[in-house]
Structure formats: C-alpha cells, structure tokens
Amino acid sequence: MGLLKRLLRMRETGLILIILALFVVMSFASPYFLTWVNMRAMAMAFAVEGIVVVGMTILLVSGGIDLSVGSVTALAMVIAGLLFLNGVDPWTASLISIAACTAIGAGMGFFVTRVGLHHFIVSLAVMVIARGACLLGTGGRPLGLFTLPPEFKFIGQGSIGVIPVVIVIFVAVVVTFDFMLRRTTIFRKVFYTGSNEKAAAYSGIRTKKVVFLTTTLCSALCGVAGIIYMARFGSAQPTFGIGMELNVIAAAVIGGASLSGGTGTIFGAILGAILLSVVSSSLALLDVSVYWQDIIRGSILLAAVSIDHYLNKRRG
C-alpha cells in the first residue's frame, strides 16, 4: 500500500486536516487567532489535561474507563498543597501526592479486577469520594501557596527559551507513551486485552494484571497533572477539574479510541484534545456565548463518533 494511501486511511490525517481547516477559517475570522499569545494560551489550555488524556487513552484501549480523573487531579493538588503548608518540602510533597494518586488507581484496579465490579461504577464512586476528600481537606476554599519556591513554580510557569516548560513536559509524555503504546510488548498486551479479553487470557496474558496496571497508570498521570496545575496556579483548588472526565474521554474517542477497548492511539487522542481546544478558543474569540460552547462540543463528539462508526461499518 502506498504511503499516501495509508496516510489517507489513518484517522489522524482526517483530524489534522480538520484542525488545519479550522486554523485557516479562524485566521480570517479573527485577527487575534493566529497570534503567538493566543497559540500559547491554547497550548497551555490542553497541555496539562493532555497528560490525563494519555492515561485515559491507555485505559480505554485496555477496555476500562475512569470517571474520577478530574477529582483525582484536584486531590493531587490538595494533598501536595496541604503537605506543603504543613512544612513539607514541595518536591517531597509532590512525590507523596503522586504516590497517593497511584494508590487510589491501584485501589480502583483492585475493585475492578479482584472484586469484579465495573470500571464505570468504581470510578464513579471514587470520583465522588475524591471530590469529598478535596472539600474536607480544604474546607472548600482554595489553598493559596504563595511561598512556593520559584524553582518549583518553574514547572508550571517557566519557559525554556520561548517554549513553556508545561509544553515540554507534555510533549515528552506524549512522545514516550505514544511510542510505547505502538511498539512495546508490554503495551501490546494492553491491546490484546482490550480487543478480546478472553482471547488474551487464552494467549497466556494475565489480563487482570494488565487492567490493574492501566487503571493505576491513569490515576498516577492524574497525580502528575495535578502537581503541574498546582505549580502553574500557585494554589490548590478543591473544585478544579469538574467535568474534566468528559473532555478527556471525548478527546480520546474523537481520536479513535473505542469505549469497547482494543483501539486507540495517543497521537490521535491528543489531536482530539487539540481539536476540542481549538474549537473552544475559536468560539470564545467569536464571542459565542459560553452557554453555547458545551452544546457545540457535545455535538462535535456525537458527529465524530457517528462518522467513525459509519466508516467502520462500511469497511467491515
């Protein structure tokens, strides 16, 4: 098969074309759109969430789903913030917080693989519990962390040359996990498990272990994202990330991940996130009411998935 033909058949190509088309239209519609400041703002808007998208995509490929990502990200901020306010060094506080999120993921993995509950229910419960913990720990008010040392804030606010550190971290995470998901034997097992769990078990794959690990990884990446948000905002916000799970799942699904598992790429999911972010930014620039934005985003999701379903059916 020719390279061009293969490129055209890839879902990523379609998304890139749509994003480019939006860029062209918007650059005419708003003079502000193609400015460095706006580009940077858009990139910052999805970069940290993009790290969560990576975790979610891998989890979706393995056949799972996680509704607790927003709450767990907020909890990461709150845990690290409280520790810092109680005199713990911010780096140590961050590590402890990421470890705590990893443990939450492992806990969900336990309930899914050992107790045998559905991902949806377990993560729904954890979503509520983690949010409650955030509010309990902070009394519902944001924690101002004004004394964070500058080298720590650098993670969220600094730049290397003209490139924000956040973007550097994001690109590193995406490239690493994209490569691993495509090429390594460990992540191939994730595809086998999500594609047909029974066939995977009949191929000697410990499918429960795989699902346990993908569940844990997703929460761990939420922890990482929470810490970056904290460094960026200089505060810990207990109500941060409400509704994040929908954005993240939408991005992954627009990027080609299937809720029934077995398909999806990190690159595609990130393009999905970029698309949603560009649309949001465009609507804001065009002075569309914020109340319209959710309606439009939801419709894009529905359209993307319907088109994909239709194309798949025709191919199959």
Binding site: Y192, N196, A199
Partner: peptide, 11 residues
C-alpha cells in the same frame, strides 16, 4: 475467544 478479530494477522 480464539482470535483478536479486528487486529492484524501478524499481531
């Protein structure tokens, strides 16, 4: 439970 239908022959 024998095959991964939507995956490639090689995989």
């Amino acid at each position: 439970d024998g095959l991964f239908l939507e995956m490639s022959i090689a995989s």
